[in-house]
């Protein structure tokens, strides 16, 4: 039982990773490309990449995960250039996060088993992590028996289980309904508060970006995918969409996205093409 009692301090054990993109150029064939000159993501911060689809957000995320590599420039993780999968990094996607052939518990226990933990210990831990997201009574369920929000919560539980220093989220809540999405945003914030992990998140939802981010990197798709602007969001937490300051930033961002859309309408080569995969 000793291992399980120590669960309370799992979250506070480590410091978030520091991530730095410098002079990144990445092309796919001759059509889609993305560049990121300088983007530093401070340890423990929550940065959001905001932009329409096709502007290279997912590419940047894959580079950060060390699942793909830039043609020019480099991604540094704690001042070390990434040359393979980034250490202590967790990924959450919009869908396909959980392995559907495993139960909720097996999904959460999977990374622990990868680390060589004994089966019974891993199960015990997994149940504790499921408890943290309020789903301990669903530990024997397969993902197909659970709602989209529950699945993402289990994915979050598994993510906490790996004790990540960097959390990469690719539109994790965009397949969920509005209420569930709000709930998941609160879950994410509480996980972030407890863990001190660095979070880099992709979204095209402006409201979501403003509710969560310390920093927003606005991405534009013309003439090629690039970071157009980096904004520090200095709103107090918890954030309130009714707050005039919140609204002011929202309008400012709205105008930017609107401008982007107009540009895209006049340039057929910029038709949304998701270059992930």
């Amino acid at each position: 039982m000793g291992t399980v009692n120590s669960m309370n301090d799992i979250a506070t054990h480590s410091v978030g990773a520091r991530l730095e993109f410098s002079n990144i150029r990445k092309s796919f064939g001759n059509t889609v490309s993305v560049e990121a000159d300088n983007l530093t993501i401070e340890p423990g911060s929550l940065t959001v990449l905001l932009g329409r689809s096709g502007c290279g957000k997912t590419t940047l995320l894959n580079l950060a995960a060390g699942l793909d590599f830039p043609d020019h420039g480099s991604v540094s993780y704690d001042n070390q250039i990434l040359q393979g999968p980034a250490p202590a990094t967790a990924l959450i996607f919009q869908t396909h996060n959980l392995f559907p052939w495993m139960t909720a518990e097996e999904n959460v226990a999977f990374p622990l088993r990868n680390q060589g933990m004994a089966k019974s210990d891993a199960q015990e831990h997994a149940r504790q992590y499921l408890k943290q997201v309020g789903l301990e009574s669903f530990s024997g369920h397969k993902p197909s028996q659970l709602s989209g929000g529950m699945r993402q919560r289990i994915a979050l539980a598994r993510t906490i289980a790996t004790k990540p220093r960097l959390l990469l989220l690719d539109e994790p809540f965009s397949a969920l309904d509005m209420q569930t999405r709000r709930m998941m945003q609160r879950y994410l914030l509480s996980v972030w508060n407890d863990s001190a992990a660095t979070i880099l998140m992709i979204t095209h939802d402006l409201h979501e970006a403003l509710m969560l981010a310390d920093r927003i990197a606005l991405m534009a798709s013309s003439p090629r995918g690039h970071i157009a602007e980096i904004m520090d969001i200095e709103l107090t937490r918890p954030r309130n969409p009714e707050d005039p300051a919140f609204r002011a930033i929202q309008q400012q961002l709205d105008r930017f996205l609107e401008h982007e859309t107009l540009l895209a309408e006049h340039d057929p080569t910029l038709e949304s093409t998701d270059q992930q995969k």
Partner: peptide, 15 residues
Amino acid sequence: IPAEYLKIARNLGTS
């Protein structure tokens, strides 16, 4: 196999 499964598995340190 959906690319996400493999990406996530690799990321979770799967041998």
